[in-house]
Nucleic acid binder design. Structure first.
Lengths: 345, 345
DNA sequence: TCCAATACCGTTAACGCACACGGAAATTCA
DNA sequence: TGAATTTCCGTGTGCGTTAACGGTATTGGA
């Protein structure tokens, strides 16, 4: 009894051939109303579900998925999502998923466009990408939509551009968490600094939201007397370290610093050796991990780029191959990394 | 070219029939060393992966997997792995996986044996379980081995009983992490307490290791002057709260408490209202989450029981259905939960 | 030398479904 | 009434893999 009903059995019960059953199954017409009705009833009664294996084998499709990310060095941020994508590649290969990785030069916008073109040309059926170059990405997204190519955005949570899914972290909540960690155990009013190294050309929405969340945390928790200063400086500033040092020295009794992006390693250059300032940063770059290890930085918030890419591909496959609509916004949990947790990464 | 290689193509390249390729694929013998070698090389080069759909269709099997856990109330620890198992059930149903959940009464050892018998009787082909009742579990495991039923152990990392995989957390490292979190920002020598509510009948190895890791952390980090007291008391002690209160009062300037299991909510009963003691506990029970929320407890280490069960079933399926050997020991990352992270759970 | 055992290998029928093709019956039109 | 449609349905092939079955050399023993 536990056996699963097949098309053949249904055909027998309805006194028709499997072809007819197949036709009503996909309402492909050419079946009289009476038999359609009969077959549908039988399927209902037997609780028929098509065998996924047979179905996919017969369809014998393969899905070309592109992943579009910036070129990078080993140990940099983008190597993690690449790892995740490769793992997904391996895991889903047997299911007919073909993942191809396209890299562009972050500093050459025309490089992005060129690679984007290539993705369309190569007849990829879906794309996973991160919105690093804002305008260029939007242009590319428009092309995807025109070609009916579904895409997933990782690292952001703005649900406006028509992606089938946005996979990222709640930046606002990340800022709040940073506030909690920075102020943990501090009973009295203290001075905190947000150290924000910006990229002149690419304003980052996530960073903005993290800072807002950070501020909100202190407001909501009655630590109003805490003073929070925000220090923003473009990464290109050739006097960056110098200016940063000056800033640090200008704040009396500085208790903690929040680095709302991956630039903790830049801040560290401006830090005095024996500084006793508590630091919360973002992203597990190799350089940042070293800082955790030697105690300069105390907490890093991990965006889980590996998981972002992995799940992104998983969702795209399920969308293409199994007609499954993924959640529109996927908020990965904030992952707090300390020195003692470092061994896992 | 981007197309996936099939057995047929490999056969053609090796100048043999698909039967031969299949034989080396499943090392079923009856193939000369030379051709075996050749075929393996070709498969390697083409990066061949058997088509899951075709494979499962041909095998036309379904896999009955049992999951054996203690009975529990909503909000208790064991409801999480059950959730994970149910998710896996849903995800893998289309692949022919049938998961059945068996619950036993933790306090009646004969209940465990009875349910265990049932699992064997029901012809389950694999089992996922946690070693809660030590001896009884060992007995059951012996039966599994006798019946050649593969099993996965969750929540422990002792690789001795022949499970195909142990999925859990590194308890030692968890203790170290607790030490790091408890002492974070404390520059001077302080007094700490380990609050260990035990279950008389079931000594827990994980707890033991956590405490060892906790102590080690302080030793390794030159915080030797820190005094660490370990207070163990059976949960059944009817004067528990009273005794705990006395203990807390007996320690001058107590800075932090480590609860190496899920019993933070018991400790909280012995705490004075306005206590200013830092607390690190384990496990996201509803009661413990409340304590995080109201600021009584500051960090909870999450064992990820949901993920443990989910991956356990995933591994069992891959083992049964795809001949994939899972890692013998899977150490899930330690997950630090704070109030600001609570919204994710 | 002949036969049997062995080592290797090819062929083939499933598995359940999708879909193209063609064919018979019923209907319409001239 | 005969031909042309239209409606409805059955047959057959293929998807990639599994595994049983059988076949041909090759080797060894008497």
């Amino acid at each position: 009894m536990g056996e699963k009903p097949t098309i053949k059995e249904i055909a027998k019960l309805a006194n028709v051939s499997i072809g007819t059953v197949d036709r009503v199954l996909h309402n492909r017409g050419d079946v009289s109303k009476k038999t359609t009705q009969l077959i549908k009833e039988i399927m209902e009664n037997l609780d028929y579900v098509p065998n996924t294996f047979a179905r996919n084998l017969a369809l014998n499709k393969s899905f070309k998925i592109a992943i579009l990310l910036p070129k990078h060095q080993k140990g940099e941020y983008w190597s993690d999502p690449i790892r995740g994508a490769k793992k997904a590649m391996k895991d889903f290969k047997a299911l007919g998923v073909i993942v191809k990785i396209y890299l562009y030069d972050q500093n050459k916008k025309e490089s992005f466009s060129k690679v984007g073109e290539q993705i369309i040309k190569d007849k990829n059926e879906a794309v996973l990408l991160a919105q690093v170059l804002f305008d260029e990405t939007n242009a590319f997204i428009r092309k995807c939509k025109a070609n009916k190519i579904p895409f997933v955005l990782i690292g952001s949570s703005h649900s406006d551009s028509g992606a089938i899914s946005y996979i990222g972290q709640n930046s606002h909540q990340g800022g709040r968490l940073a506030g909690e960690l920075l102020s943990f155990g501090h009973k009295v009013a203290s001075n905190y600094l947000v150290f924000n190294v910006t990229k002149a050309e690419n304003p980052n929405f996530n960073v903005k939201e993290r800072i807002e969340g950070f501020q909100e945390y202190f407001e909501n928790n009655g630590i109003k007397k805490a003073s929070i200063e925000i220090f923003s400086i473009p990464q290109e500033d050739y006097k960056l370290v110098e200016k940063a040092k000056a800033k640090l020295n200008s704040i009396p009794d500085l208790k903690g610093i929040f680095v709302p992006n991956s630039k903790s390693y830049i801040l560290s250059k401006a830090l005095s050796k024996d500084s006793n300032i508590r630091i919360v940063g973002y992203d597990l770059l190799e350089k940042n991990k070293s800082l955790l290890q030697d105690g300069t930085v105390h907490f890093l918030i991990n965006q889980k780029p590996y998981e972002q890419a992995y799940h992104g591909i998983e969702y795209l496959y399920k969308y293409l191959g199994m007609n499954q609509q993924p959640p529109e916004i996927v908020s990965l949990p904030l992952d707090i990394v300390t020195r003692e947790k470092l061994m896992y990464y």
